[in-house]
């Protein structure tokens, strides 16, 4: 899966979870800067991304992921590895 495809798909998930249809993602975007982000949202987001990409994050990812780029590399890494 190409990086821009991943971003497009992630955008759909983020917009849904944060209930904001204008949201644009950049790789450097930090979760803590997103309005409405908190630990509840973090786990919701992770779970929704797993459903959308039919993948499973590792527990270490859960704690490590801090920005959009982290998710992309985790997804792409998993894809490449698998």
């Amino acid at each position: 899966m190409k990086k821009n495809e991943v971003i497009d798909k992630l955008t759909v998930v983020f917009r849904d979870v944060f209930d904001d249809n204008t949201m644009m993602l950049t790789e450097t975007m930090l979760f803590k800067d997103i309005e409405g982000w908190d630990s509840l949202m973090h786990f919701t987001l992770i779970s929704e991304i797993e459903n959308a990409f039919n993948c499973k994050f590792k527990m270490s990812d859960l704690l490590r992921i801090k920005c959009v780029g982290d998710i992309i590399s985790s997804i792409c890494g998993e894809r490449n590895g698998g």
């Binding site: 630990s39 786990f43 779970s47 994050f57 590792k58 527990m59 859960l62 704690l63």
Partner: peptide
Amino acid sequence: HDSKLYLAS
């Protein structure tokens, strides 16, 4: 049950 969610949080 999602083990990592439970273990992490």
